[in-house]
């Protein structure tokens, strides 16, 4: 099972490099989804199927979709529709698609493989995760709650203002 881990890890690294080198946001996001999928497979091969599912539901599912929605809602003009047409060319989606295909093949292989020991170690089931979250690690869960509260209060305050502030470097060049 070593090989499945390394393939998934390589896909994750490759996809993440593409995320930071792409100029177009949507292209970067496509690779970001692939990166999350790859990490999820990594979790799976390491014996954490529950974490793998969470990774897909929360990161690849909810968060990235939200980001894409926000980007698409920002300024929809005729130009953007043209852009969107360009995005649907194979040149754009072939890269992420190939990487995802590798992951899919790997996953199918894992499920259909003859050897029963799919995982590198004993798998951690959802029940065990829940038991530890609300057992010894309950303080951590509550601290995470406070972390979210700090984030929300801060984002609320910073996001409310409308006033545009010109950066001091830009100011100087304009004057």
């Amino acid at each position: 099972m070593e090989l499945t881990f390394f393939i998934a890890a390589a896909v994750a690294v490759l996809a993440t490099i593409m995320v930071v080198t792409q100029y177009n946001l949507i292209h970067a996001l496509l690779y970001l989804v692939v990166s999350f999928l790859a990490i999820s497979v990594v979790f799976f091969t390491l014996g954490a199927p529950f974490m793998a599912a969470l990774e897909i539901i929360i990161y690849a599912g909810a968060i990235v979709v939200l980001i894409i929605f926000v980007i698409m809602m920002l300024n929809l003009t005729q130009e953007d529709i043209q852009h969107e047409k360009e995005w649907l060319k194979p040149r754009i989606w072939i890269g992420p698609a190939v990487l995802s295909m590798i992951l899919l093949v790997e996953l199918v292989y894992i499920f259909t493989a003859d050897t029963p020991d799919t995982y590198r170690s004993t798998p951690v089931e959802a029940q065990a995760v829940g038991m530890s979250l609300f057992g010894p690690y309950v303080l951590g869960v509550q601290l995470s709650g406070m972390l979210l509260m700090a984030g929300i209060v801060g984002a609320y305050h910073l996001g409310r203002q409308k006033k545009k502030v010109i950066h001091r470097f830009l100011e100087r060049t304009e004057a």
């Binding site: 972390l147 700090a150 984030g151 209060v153 801060g154 984002a155 305050h157 910073l158 203002q161 006033k163 502030v165 010109i166 950066h167 001091r168 100011e171």
Partner: peptide
């Protein structure tokens, strides 16, 4: 995370 928001708390300031 609290400090991120605290540092840029006064949004009307340019810095």
């Amino acid at each position: 995370v609290s400090l991120y928001a605290l540092i840029s708390y006064l949004r009307t300031r340019e810095m």
